[in-house]
Design a binder for these strands. Sequence first.
DNA 1: AGCAAGTTTTAGTAGTCGCTAAAATAGTTG
DNA 2: CAACTATTTTAGCGACTACTAAAACTTGCT
Lengths: 105, 105
Amino acid sequence: MDAVKIIAEPRRREILRLCWHGERAAGDLADAFEITFGAVSQHLKVLRDAGLVTVRRDGTRRYYRANPTALGPLAAYLEAQWGRQLDRLTELAEAAESDSGGTRA
Amino acid sequence: MDAVKIIAEPRRREILRLCWHGERAAGDLADAFEITFGAVSQHLKVLRDAGLVTVRRDGTRRYYRANPTALGPLAAYLEAQWGRQLDRLTELAEAAESDSGGTRA
DNA sequence: AGCAAGTTTTAGTAGTCGCTAAAATAGTTG
DNA sequence: CAACTATTTTAGCGACTACTAAAACTTGCT
């Protein structure tokens, strides 16, 4: 699974967001969703395998944290695909906003 | 289908790339792939419905062109999700490059 | 009208994805 | 070792996705 597909899943983006600024126990992360602990653990495995999160073991707990540097290759990929347009994404956001009023992503 | 999932599909990203700097007939686009014309047309429909491409009819041909402004909402979404980290993506790319040498996305 | 070229749409299919429920694993404590 | 907590893994399922092949539609030409 390539990185783009991995972060295309809303639940995984939310997980990344939750452990972006500091580590979070797997159980804590799971509590943030209404799905099963098992399901969250599966998402964590995907993120782990892609190197998008790192794990620290402490007792029976696993503490997860987003790994920003792993997003580097993703950035390189986006750069290659979208070129300089990427730099202007925010501008484009505003333009589209005033054009259509739609904010759907 | 949200925009993030739409561009998660490699074939669709390639289509967008092909008609990014100028319009391309549907047939031309289809020729760039080894899949069926029909399959490409289906991708075009997805992109069309999301407003990510615009169409110009000329005779029996349909000329497609990527619509950068439609990526605005996507940008807004990414901004909201990733915040300022997005600005540093290129930096991160370089860091990851020298760390692991891997460029897989 | 008939025919051909370009494109879209439909029906059906194999593979993938995210989920649940339950079993298995790892670590801590008595 | 047994009991308990935290987490991972497995098996199975329904929904969805990208694809092929074929039919339908559109436009231009004669």
